[in-house]
Design a protein around this nucleic acid. Structure first.
Lengths: 226, 226
DNA sequence: TGTCTTTTGTACCATTTCGCAAACTATTCC
DNA sequence: GGAATAGTTTGCGAAATGGTACAAAAGACA
C-alpha cells in the first residue's frame, strides 16, 4: 500500500506545445517553471554518467538541477524514468555529434580518425574526471536486470555497428579496402575499439595513449597501408 | 564523529596461519568460524558482479554469504574493502582460468580461440543473467572516483594487454603473422574484442553471436589467412 | 477582481543503509 | 576447571534514501 492518490502517471513531461508551429510563446497556463527542462536533464545526465544509477541519489540530482524533488518527479517521473530519459538524451547528443562525420564523404581513414576524435572528446569531458561512455559504463550494468535499459543498450550497440559498417562498405566500394575485407567484421572491431577506449578513459588513461590505440586499430582495420 | 572505539583497522583478515607449512590444522585459537572465508568471498563477488558496488547492500551480502554483518565486517572490513577483495578474487580466478592457455604452446589462432572461449564462459556464467566482466562492468565505473580501484583497473587492463602481446610476439616469431604485424597494436585489439564481448554479453547477446564476433576479430588480427 | 491552473517549497513518512557496541558462545591453552 | 581468545548474535542508532501531501505562489483568463 504505497501509492494513495497519485496523479495518474506523472504525465509525459512534454508540455504539449499547443501547436508545433507556434514556436515562441504558447503562453502556458499556470505558474511558470523555474527551470529549463533541457538544462536540468543535462545536469542529471552528467551525474548519472559520473556515478551510475544506484550511486546517484535524488538529493544529488536535486542539487545539481536546482529543482527540488517534487519538481523533479513531476517533470521526469521517478528516478528510473529520469535515468532512462538521461540515457536517451545522451544518445541524442552522441548521435548529433557524430552525424556530420558519418554522413560526410571523406576518405575512410580520415573519417575514422574524426569519429574517434569526437568520441574521445565525449569520453574525456568533465571536470571531475573523465566520464566515459554512458552505454558502456553505466547502462550496460543496469542492462542485466532492467529489460527497458537492456533494449536501449542493444539498440545503441547495434546502431553503432551499423554506422561503422556503412563507413566500411563505402570505403570498400571506393577501393580503400582489400577485396576480402568484411565490413561487418570490421564494424565490430571498430565498435570494440570505441568500447575499449571508453573503458580506459574512465581509468584515467591519457588522451595521448588512447589516440595511439586508435591509430593502431585504424591501421589494422584499413589494412597496413603504411 | 562516526567512529568511536573501533578496533584499529579490521585486521588483515588473514588469520596469520602460524606457519605456512603446517597446512592442515594449525588449530586456531578461539571459537571456530561458522563460515569458510573463501566461499563467502565468492558469494560476495557474485553479488558485486551482478549489481555493482552501490546497488549491493550489506544486507544482500549478509544474506548471500550467510554471515551477519558484524562477521562480514570482522572478516573483510567495510563494504569498500570487501569490494576490493572481491575484485582481487575475481582477478585471481580469471588469471587461473586463463593461465594454462597463455602458457601453452599452441598455434596462435587456436590459442586465441581458447582464450575467448574461456572468457565467454566467465562472462556468461550466472543463473540470474550474464554477469560480464568485473573490470569492464563495475570496477571501471568506480575507477573515476576511487584511486585504489582505478589502479587495479589499470593494472588489469595492462596485464591483459601484456598477455595478448606475448601471444602475438610468439606467433610472429613462428611466422604465423605477417612481418609488419605489430604485437602491441594487435594486443590492444584483442583486449578491445574481449571488452566488447563483455559488454554485449551483459546485454544478453547470445553466445553464438559473440562467438561470431570473436571469429571475425581473430580473422582480422591473424591476417586473412583463410 | 476572482477563479482556475500549474509549479514551487516545506515538511514529512516509511524504509533502507551502514556501521557498531555489548553480550553471548565455543574453542584452545594452561 | 579457569583464563584467554576468536567468533556469533542481537539489536541499536544515526543518517540517507525514494517518494509524497499539502499549502503557498505565480501567472493566465474571464
Amino acid at each position: 500500500m504505497v501509492q494513495k492518490t497519485r496523479r495518474p502517471p506523472p504525465a509525459p513531461a512534454k508540455p504539449a506545445p499547443a501547436k508545433p508551429d507556434a514556436a515562441a510563446a504558447p503562453k502556458r497556463r499556470g505558474r511558470p517553471r523555474a527551470y529549463q527542462p533541457d538544462v536540468a536533464l543535462g545536469r542529471a545526465l552528467d551525474l548519472f554518467r559520473k556515478s551510475g544509477f544506484a550511486a546517484t541519489s535524488l538529493d544529488d540530482l536535486s542539487a545539481a538541477t536546482g529543482m527540488n524533488r517534487p519538481s523533479l518527479y513531476g517533470a521526469f517521473g521517478d528516478k528510473r524514468e529520469l535515468y532512462i530519459k538521461s540515457y536517451e538524451r545522451y544518445r541524442e547528443n552522441a548521435r548529433a555529434a557524430l552525424a556530420d562525420v558519418f554522413r560526410a564523404q571523406l576518405p575512410l581513414r580520415k573519417r575514422l580518425e574524426r569519429i574517434y576524435g569526437i568520441a574521445l572528446d565525449i569520453y574525456i569531458s568533465g571536470e571531475e574526471g573523465p566520464k566515459g561512455c554512458f552505454t558502456v559504463l553505466t547502462a550496460a550494468s543496469e542492462a542485466v536486470n532492467d529489460p527497458v535499459i537492456r533494449a536501449m543498450v542493444i539498440d545503441s550497440l547495434a546502431e553503432l555497428d551499423r554506422a561503422f559498417a556503412s563507413c566500411f562498405r563505402v570505403g570498400k566500394e571506393r577501393g580503400e579496402l582489400s577485396d576480402d575485407a568484411d565490413p561487418v567484421v570490421l564494424s565490430q572491431l571498430a565498435s570494440a575499439t570505441l568500447h575499449t577506449i571508453a573503458i580506459r578513459a574512465r581509468a584515467h588513461v591519457s588522451r595521448k595513449e588512447l589516440e595511439a590505440i586508435v591509430k593502431g586499430a585504424i591501421g589494422v582495420m584499413c589494412g597496413t597501408g603504411k
